[in-house]
Design a protein around this nucleic acid. Structure first.
Lengths: 253, 253
DNA sequence: CAGTGGTCTAGACCACTGA
DNA sequence: CAGTGGTCTAGACCACTGC
């Protein structure tokens, strides 16, 4: 199990349930034991059992209910916040070796657009980082990040060629808490095409990202442009997740 | 409030909390009343109160905890499963008028690729629908859907120019329960470019979708290609949502 | 230190499912 | 009908926060 012995009971239970599902002890398509049975097996009340099951439900690992015991669903992925927000961590999890070449690190004045998103004044100092990200040594993505100065100044002392900015900022006590990702497709500009080693006008998968701390203060505005074919985004959703985390947007709204 | 009088207490509570947040009674950045206070106000035990707060937390509407009362976050979107899965419903919510022109509706044998995704045998009958989707009369997306025959046969009696297939199938008792969306960027083919009124080779935002019923049986395999600039995908995530609904993927994994 | 949310228990009633 | 999950109560102890 991945949880510590001191972890809350419901967390240990959901890990144990997850283990049984992944090990095939509770195969996909089968019914779970009833809550009453699980209470007896683990010598606990219904509370923690239900809390653990609710977590599996929110993950999409189990489904069904009301009068019937839940059913195990198959082929469900899982990814943590940091995996989604850190290129480095994500690449490692995919079994690829992440790399980066810093093209530019600059302190400059915020553009009007960046200032609005980051909730600062136009002309306030920001730190721009432009990096080419690699997978197994091959160009995969062009990352353009703009940090508010208070956070970005920490990067001056950091070798941005050495690894994950996300992890470094975490070690410096910056707690990234939430992010909004906007995904679309764009044609590569001349400059982008040259760095990525492709043709101008060819399609790129673009992810724009606004990250914030717990109290909602913006920290970073980023634009990541992926070479197509190498990377895609996968989103799972179900009816149970009442209002989903995700939405499609259109201009003028 | 949107919930019925007979709805569970925790649902009515979360609606009431949401109302107070949207009305400005609990402004963004402010602290919520303590759970004990809410218990007194509504004359209930902590259970339903906590369940309602947990829902707001999962929506990203409130944040924080442990020793401190939660804080209201601002600017949080919300979208239901059906809005994300139905072009028609989504367009209406965006204030646009959805439209469609059916290019082709055909019964044919499943390709090897489609058969594998839909968990049927290659050569089994499937129903293909190719439609140009419009927003306010302008081409916006090219939709290629492949339905398993058992479901697709219902479409033969449906005017696919008239509206939402998703809604029609729901009215026919087909209960779509979950979907996996894979998003990437591709270059438009000659055929696609002609229908969409763009140039071959220009970028398209592609969403491939596999929808399933509650027991995990695949129903539809779709490929939607959006004209860029008109549409993008927005995803919000936070640390609290332990393993998110979303992930980035790469080839060979 | 007092107040907060996080966790857990024990027991109860209800609505829904399937035999 | 018995068994299931969905809901709610009342009370308890803990860890964390800020004063």
């Amino acid at each position: 199990m991945s949880t510590q012995a001191s972890a809350p009971l419901h967390a240990r239970l959901s890990d144990e349930f997850m283990r049984r599902i992944n090990s095939g002890e509770w195969p996909a398509g089968s019914r779970l034991p009833s809550e009453a049975e699980l209470c007896r097996e683990f010598g606990t009340s219904r509370g923690p059992i239900r809390q653990a099951l609710a977590f599996l439900r929110s993950e999409g690992v189990i489904t069904g209910g009301q009068g019937k015991s839940p059913v195990v669903r198959g082929g469900v992925p899982s990814q943590s916040f940091s995996t989604f927000n850190s290129f480095t961590e994500w690449a490692r999890k995919m079994g690829k070796e992440p790399g980066q070449r810093t093209v530019e690190l600059a302190i400059r004045q915020a553009t009007a657009e960046a200032a609005e998103a980051l909730e600062i004044r136009p002309g306030d100092k920001v730190v721009d980082v432009l990096r080419l990200r690699l997978l197994d040594g091959e160009p995969a993505m062009l990352e353009t990040s703009t940090f508010v100065h208070e956070v970005g100044r920490l990067l001056i002392d950091f070798d941005t060629d050495s690894g994950s900015i996300f992890e470094y900022l975490k070690s410096q006590g910056i707690r990234i808490h939430s992010a909004r990702h906007t995904i679309d497709a764009v044609a590569a500009s001349e400059a982008q095409a040259e760095i990525l080693g492709t043709r101008a006008g060819s399609p790129l998968l673009r992810e724009r990202r606004l990250t914030a701390t717990e109290d909602g203060t913006p920290v970073e505005l980023a634009e990541d442009c992926y070479l197509p074919g190498i990377t895609n985004f996968i989103i799972d959703n179900t009816v149970e997740q009442r209002a989903a985390l995700l939405r499609i947007h259109t201009e003028g709204q």
